[in-house]
Design a protein around this nucleic acid. Structure first.
Lengths: 250, 250
DNA sequence: ATCCGCTCTTGATCTGTGTCAAGGAGTTAA
DNA sequence: TTAACTCCTTGACACAGATCAAGAGCGGAT
């Protein structure tokens, strides 16, 4: 299962994207708290396509995604699968208090995780209130994202679903770079057609057809299979069925 | 908007179902913490069919459902609606830190809410760590429920969707009464066909047809339109597509 | 260079669910 | 009693998306 421990020294700036350390802890932590966090922390890489944890596995750690993209996936006995979460850098994996994993966690791209051994981490939560508060904020955001996605899954057409997904990835990308003010946004899709289908509750054929249709209608342009160019972000949002930008997710 | 303040004295046993007071606080709270909670607390009733809060409204409070059933609903501009949460007694409404509501909150039946004014409640969270910890637990449970529902919305057939919903309501009901060990479970559906459709991402006609089909196939029996009898709970679970009871939701 | 495996596209056809329409059953009000 | 209303059921038909099938593009291994 391709597990490699990395030393903190490989991340000279600290764990830049690690939500726990930088967003939850650093700004408010006492030095001795940081030390305790470092003691229970280790890094781990997983190759694209590998499964980090299977549903039901014992969870020995919780983790934060440092780089790459992971997904939470549920599978029914007959093989139907539904992705229930897209984990981007900064997102959190696992939950304090749970012994075993509730979902498969799959590395969609090569990823680096910042892991914390679970038991000591749970102790830290009890002793360090602002960690629980930060985790609560993050969890509430995830809950909003999940509910937003329920609207997508339950009520949107295939075309709207695709546009919604593209809008999310585009937004994430524009947010990471300088705010893509006005100018066209472009990015590489980090998901295969099949992964998109699993996220959207569609088949990969329908995904492919709808992407072709959006291309034909000049809502997007493609370079190769994965590189997407969005000439007019508002238009894309409109296709997604949520004209008022507002919420959306992730 | 039908707002009635009730006095705590109308709930002589305290607020039995109130998650914050009894599950989050009582067992671990100091007396002075309980007093502070009481100061910012009030009760409110809402009639069936009324909207408690509209999306975008300013949230002056957070609340816990004491009795009855409420729902969280999202609506698109063209009127398509998706229920994104079913709130049963003990469930929490609102989130600390958010100024305005992200969803419509609708009273599906007559309900009683135990409300806490938001600002002082947020202060309490900061000062009283175990409240944040309890809220984190509850939020994580809701997140699991939402993700479970994503599988229902994205990958299940209409028949499986109906069976899934019936199973949830049945489980809740059996849990409230003495564990319905073996014997047949019966309960009143608290939702109209239309509300079920909004929850399941279907039309009310399809809901009606599938309920008729389950009745015809003796998976359930009906007395009137709303009273459901489940002779074999395992069979129902099987129809829902999740043979291994295990998780499910809410 | 050739073959293999993987991802993606496109076509033809099938089917589950939506849409439109009519009417039944129960409740409340006149 | 009838009328009006809400909630639910059922039928006929349409259509979005699934399924089945063939093949294109492309990188990696031999």
């Amino acid at each position: 299962m391709n597990e490699i421990s990395l030393k903190s020294s490989q991340f000279p700036n600290g764990c830049q994207n690690c939500a726990i350390r930088h967003q939850a802890v650093c700004s408010r932590c006492e030095p001795d708290e940081l030390e305790r966090l470092d003691e229970i922390k280790y890094y781990r890489t997983v190759e694209a396509g590998q499964t980090v944890i299977w549903t039901g596995d014992r969870m020995e750690f919780v983790a934060s995604v440092v780089s790459g993209i992971a997904s939470l996936t549920q599978t029914m006995e007959d093989g139907r699968t539904q992705m229930v979460g897209l984990l981007l850098p900064g997102d959190f994996i696992g939950r304090p208090g749970r012994e075993s994993a509730a979902y498969d966690v799959i590395a969609t791209t090569d990823i680096v995780l910042c892991c914390f051994r679970r038991k000591p981490f749970e102790n830290m939560i009890v002793q360090t209130p602002h960690i629980a508060q930060r985790l609560l904020e993050m969890t509430l955001d995830e809950l909003d994202a999940a509910r937003e996605w329920m609207l997508v899954l339950g009520r949107k057409t295939a075309r709207e679903k695709i546009a919604s997904l593209l809008a999310i990835v585009a937004r994430r990308n524009a947010a990471l770079k300088l705010q893509g003010t006005g100018e066209k946004i472009q990015f590489d899709l980090p998901l295969t057609r099949e992964a998109m289908a699993d996220y959207l509750g569609l088949t990969l054929e329908t995904v492919s057809r709808q992407i072709s249709a959006l291309k034909r209608d000049k809502v997007i342009a493609l370079e190769g299979k994965r590189h997407v160019i969005v000439p007019d972000y508002r238009r894309l949002l409109n296709e997604a069925g949520d004209d008022s930008d507002g919420g959306m997710m992730m």
